[in-house]
């Protein structure tokens, strides 16, 4: 009886292990203390940001709920202006950097044949991670929905072709000199160099970004019917 018990115990042990085989798939947390602190800081920042958004929304709600028609209208106007600003439909000015895209040297990609949509997209991603708030490529203001694509070897931004080299990219950011330094050692710089292009980065105290002229086509949104 004892040997049978031992065998069944052994069997149970193996069955439990077998269950463990599929269970162990989730990745282990290998962050060290600095990464944890970093993540914590990020979470705290997010917390602050969300709180700000919440209080902003609450302020708006109060404005809407006030009995005074005039202040209701005022609040609506403010909200609309805010949305327009977010949608890039307003001219925006501030500190930033002026990036000039040009050929690396004479004879290199002077007609801009190295330029392609992926390159521009990667640059925009990089600018956004480096802290850019608003971007305009050769007078085309970028929004979240701005299309960037190739049509017959020419890059189109907002459905308009990019001009010949050199053209400017205007980037608004609260910390322009930081962005300049980081951009100069960025991957995009190397990507551009590989295509025979380069970027001249200049800090500007006052940079003006044009408004996005196209009004957005809203296809899949409907106003909510109030009760």
């Amino acid at each position: 009886m004892l040997s049978i018990t031992l065998v069944t115990a052994f069997l149970g042990f193996m069955v439990a292990l077998q269950f463990g085989v599929t269970k162990e798939d989730k990745p282990r947390d290998t962050r060290d203390i600095y990464q944890l602190q970093d993540d914590l800081t990020k979470a705290e920042k997010k917390h602050v940001q969300l709180n700000e958004q919440l209080s902003e929304s609450n302020r708006l709600l109060e404005g809407y709920e006030s009995d005074d028609t005039k202040s209701q209208l005022q609040t609506m106007k403010e909200a609309l202006d805010k949305q327009k600003e977010l949608a890039g439909e307003t001219v925006k000015a501030g500190t930033g950097v002026l990036v000039t895209v040009q050929a690396l040297a004479q004879g290199y990609s002077e007609a801009g044949e190295g330029l392609n949509a992926d390159l521009i997209r990667r640059l925009i991603n990089e600018l956004n991670t480096l802290g850019a708030t608003d971007i305009a490529i050769a007078d085309e203001r970028l929004t979240n929905r701005s299309p960037i694509r190739m049509v017959h070897e020419i890059v189109y931004v907002n459905d308009h072709p990019l001009p010949d080299l050199p053209f400017p990219i205007r980037v608004l950011t609260p910390h322009p000199s930081d962005l300049k330094k980081r951009l100069e050692v960025s991957e995009s710089m190397e990507d551009f160099a590989r295509e025979g292009l380069t970027m001249m980065v200049k800090v500007e105290d006052r940079l003006k970004l044009p408004a996005n002229g196209e009004s957005e086509k809203v296809e899949y949104m409907k106003p909510v019917k109030g009760d």
Partner: peptide, 29 residues
């Protein structure tokens, strides 16, 4: 007693947290 043994084995296997790499799952089964 054998049932108890099975149960004890299961508990030990569960709580020791020994994990078998997936490549060896065949052998185990």
């Amino acid at each position: 007693l054998p049932v108890l043994g099975l149960f004890i084995g299961l508990v030990i296997g569960w709580f020791t947290n020994v994990s078998i790499p997936e490549a060896y799952a065949h052998y185990l089964s």
